[in-house]
């Protein structure tokens, strides 16, 4: 070894914490935006399906195709393709703030599909029971679908956030910062395996923490047991 290791290594002592912060910020903002936009998109996707609340098969097919398109583009390509849009939104294509844009765009359709699946799991009889009260579609979505599907929605958001953590590493590779960037530039390109190990350990910790919190919340929201 020809470089200072572990606590003597400035890449760890000086850069690890800020990188962790960037990863957390990227994940948090992208997850927030994905939930805020993916939830209505997922609801729309669900409601327009055949035999559902507001059946519009043509709209459903179009949304479906759009969502699948979004999910099938490899993230790295999405990120590059979105550079002009990112510049327009945040003024730059570098830094964690810029990375939030492609991360969100990639995660919105992902989360929307999970939302649709969670809503589809709510038995149709419950919808009919509330329709018989004279409820309008908006009331049904707010008073029945979202609360009844909440455990599933929270699990979906958790999966999305965990997926986003691993995508932040990819975003890091092209100037997004964060633990992924640190791991690549020191651990991989400069053979500093201590940095690599520290970054991976922190990423695992972040994922475990998100999963733990998500499971906890989902269980709290679940009144079925």
């Amino acid at each position: 070894m020809n470089h200072p290791m572990w606590l003597d290594n400035p890449a760890i002592t000086a850069e690890l914490l800020p990188a962790l912060g960037q990863t957390l910020l990227m994940t948090a903002f992208a997850a927030l935006i994905s939930v805020l936009l993916g939830l209505p998109l997922g609801i729309w996707l669900w409601a327009t399906a055949r035999g559902c609340l507001a059946p519009r098969p043509a709209v459903h097919r179009a949304l479906s195709a759009l969502v699948d398109l979004g999910r099938s583009i490899p993230f790295i390509i999405l990120m590059i393709a979105l550079i002009p849009f990112t510049r327009f939104m945040v003024g730059t294509a570098l830094g964690w703030q810029a990375a939030v844009v492609p991360l969100s765009v990639g995660a919105i359709p992902f989360f929307a599909r999970l939302v649709e699946a969670a809503l589809r799991d709510v038995p149709h009889g419950k919808v009919e029971a509330v329709q018989m009260m004279g409820a309008a579609n908006g009331q049904i979505i707010r008073q029945v679908m979202v609360p009844e599907a909440l455990p599933g929605l929270i699990s979906g958001a958790t999966v999305t956030a965990v997926t986003l953590v691993s995508y932040t590493a990819m975003a890091g590779a092209v100037g997004g910062g964060g633990l992924g960037a640190l791991a690549i530039s020191y651990g991989y390109q400069r053979y500093q395996s201590d940095v690599m190990i520290a970054c991976i350990a922190l990423l695992v910790l972040v994922v475990v923490a998100i999963q733990f919190a998500g499971d906890r919340l989902a269980r709290l929201a679940d009144h079925r047991r």
Partner: peptide, 12 residues
């Protein structure tokens, strides 16, 4: 008023 075979109550 409608009573269903399976009560169809909201769990939430």
């Amino acid at each position: 008023g409608m009573v269903f075979q399976h009560a169809n109550l909201l769990d939430s």
